[in-house]
Design a protein around this nucleic acid. Structure first.
Lengths: 354, 354
DNA sequence: GTTAGCACTCACCTTGATTGAGTGCTAACA
DNA sequence: TGTTAGCACTCAATCAAGGTGAGTGCTAAC
């Protein structure tokens, strides 16, 4: 594959990304002046098709880039690596990150990603190693019930109201809290659950309360709260010509509705900084003519989150990669501080993600 | 309008709800045996059209019920009132309400509503009078930062990490918490904000911490966290023939994406138990050929939430009304206890809704 | 190796005829 | 007077036929 072929292929991909229509030889010869006649282009295109880079919907239509072609194209894009920070300022302008709740922040991130790329954006909250307990506090809510607040090292707070028989004063609850904190801090939630019976004996006669607590921890362990998955730009996708087909729209929509499935598709497993999965590369049947581009961000506590964009295979890879890169960087910055926020005097919390 | 006309109209509506196709006179005469020939039906239909109950897409098509017709139909349904509890058991079977978080519960409710009706379901969290503070607790998170937990009478918990200079022991924080609780309990958030400077003076030398707290309360007051709106069944809507038109799908989708707008559309203002808005009755341009049926549920603290179903004007009103009614009842039951949950030994909390 | 020219293919559009569901009207009937 | 059979009429939807044009592959000349 010589340089000229590559340039022609690139022109075809560019044009197809723009128009979503099969590209003819004459278009290339005229719009992208290569100093070659359409006949020559035609010969080259024929070769490219033989090499597997182009497909032909039917004999009298133009050519369409194959997944293999996009792969080449993207690899070449990533190699030169100049695009990384192209959209940094625009992202910074749109994404303020000024919100109290983790959920609001990732919602906003998804919003910005989708408006900037015009594709479907998905943002997963940070996750990673199991959080370690730092502090447990029981706050009286009403007679016979208390709020359990567990502060972990990742800044995550888990809380639930538990009920118990009898009446305990605020001070008693505080005393129990202190005892529990002393006994359980440094442990993960499953570990805490294990030693709880023993601790219970030592702490004393509030067996009932501790049973409730144990029940809560147990439930949490097995099915932690499902993490909030932020999605943006679903309606934007419908303006694309590839989604004039109802079947595909339905597919997309049900994927978006099944958040956990969506999350599992988007989530990155390795710890590479980027992933670009083109069409069938993802191995997901419904995603055959979609591409999935993901990047990661990380928090001060070493947890990792994923941001991703899903679009048609003919997506604007440069733009998407550049925007994702900038957004990843900014989220990492934002979560790089202990309280999870940039800006002095800012109050914050990060919670509700397991 | 005599009885026979009404029966014919009813048959037309029933058939149209089923098929979504204009109904002809022969269909009525054959399928719904009225003991009348198609010619007679035709005369009656002509009258019904003149009365404004039927529309004709074009001269050689059947008739389609108008909004006025549905209104009559629904009013008649509601009048007989027998349908209320038809689906109670089915709802109970699908909707367990076994979840810790308010958000999970309303998500599940939306899910059940949409699967049972096959339309778009929306569930709004309870809202109402401003919550009153019951307990404030500061939980140490790390050096120089603490988690503020505010328990209110509605069971709502608001929390955020605040930062302060210096170092405060767990016991000191507890002492401050107790003082704050004593001073501020019984007050609403804005009231608390007002008296905080004075309290601050009395409590002593932790001016910095209290300034942070004040800042937090102030921010909360002006822009409370936007409530979580649960939506289910978006993709289900696409199977309806009325959504083979892309324009409508796009409309629907962007509405679903704009949760706050969706909430304002669904939310009931009066305190009637039911609302059925048919087509243009809603006054919302995009909803011209949709109907919106809503019901309410309430919590032990007197707050009120809304559940709603959005479907085409030709929706299955009986089914929808019956399901909504049962669900409203069950949510009211579920939130009828102080801890917001049915079932003994269940732990729970309700939070994250302003 | 490149290009002009030409025959060929095939999706897409237009046109026109056909079909069939449905109506409105009229005249006959109970 | 209300009901019905019959008939002419309308009009969306379907289908086949023909035309159009974008695009290709091949060949021969440069």
């Amino acid at each position: 594959m010589d340089d000229r072929k590559f340039r022609i292929l690139q022109a075809i991909i560019d044009d197809y990304i723009l128009t979503a229509e099969p590209v003819g030889s004459r278009t290339i010869s005229k719009k992208y002046d290569m100093g070659l006649s359409s006949a020559t282009i035609r010969n080259e295109m024929s070769d490219l098709e033989e090499l597997g880079y182009l497909d032909q919907p039917h004999v009298s239509a133009g050519r369409v880039p194959s997944a293999k072609a996009y792969r080449l194209y993207v690899d070449q894009l990533l190699e030169q690596g100049t695009l990384r920070n192209l959209d940094e300022e625009t992202v910074r302008a749109h994404f303020t990150g000024r919100a109290h709740q983790m959920e609001d922040i990732i919602d906003q991130a998804a919003q910005v990603l989708s408006t900037m790329t015009n594709y479907l954006a998905v943002v997963l909250p940070p996750s990673g190693r199991p959080p370690v307990i730092r502090n447990i506090q029981l706050v009286p809510v009403a007679t016979g019930s208390a709020l359990v607040v567990i502060v972990t090292d990742t800044g995550i707070v888990r809380d639930t109201v538990i009920r118990y028989n009898g009446q305990l004063s605020s001070d008693t609850l505080y005393a129990i809290s202190q005892a529990l904190t002393q006994e359980l801090s440094g442990k993960t939630l499953p570990e805490a659950l294990e030693v709880l019976p023993e601790v219970s004996r030592r702490v004393g006669d509030n067996a009932d309360l501790l049973r409730s607590l144990s029940g809560f921890l147990g439930e949490r362990k097995e099915k932690g709260r499902k993490p909030h998955v932020a999605v943006g730009g679903t309606s934007r996708m419908l303006t694309l010509p590839e989604y004039s087909d109802m079947e595909r729209v339905r597919n997309l929509l049900s994927l978006v509705e099944a958040r956990d499935r969506l999350a599992s598709i988007v989530r990155q497993n390795g710890n590479v900084q980027f992933t670009v999965r083109i069409g069938p590369e993802s191995g997901i049947p419904e995603m055959e003519n979609c591409s999935i581009v993901t990047a990661t961000y990380s928090t001060y506590s070493g947890q990792q989150g994923t941001i991703g964009v899903i679009g048609p295979t003919r997506m604007q890879y440069q733009k998407v990669i550049s925007v994702l890169s900038s957004m990843g960087q900014q989220l990492t910055e934002l979560f790089g501080h202990e309280d999870g926020h940039a800006g002095p005097g800012d109050s914050s919390d990060e919670r509700r993600h397991s």
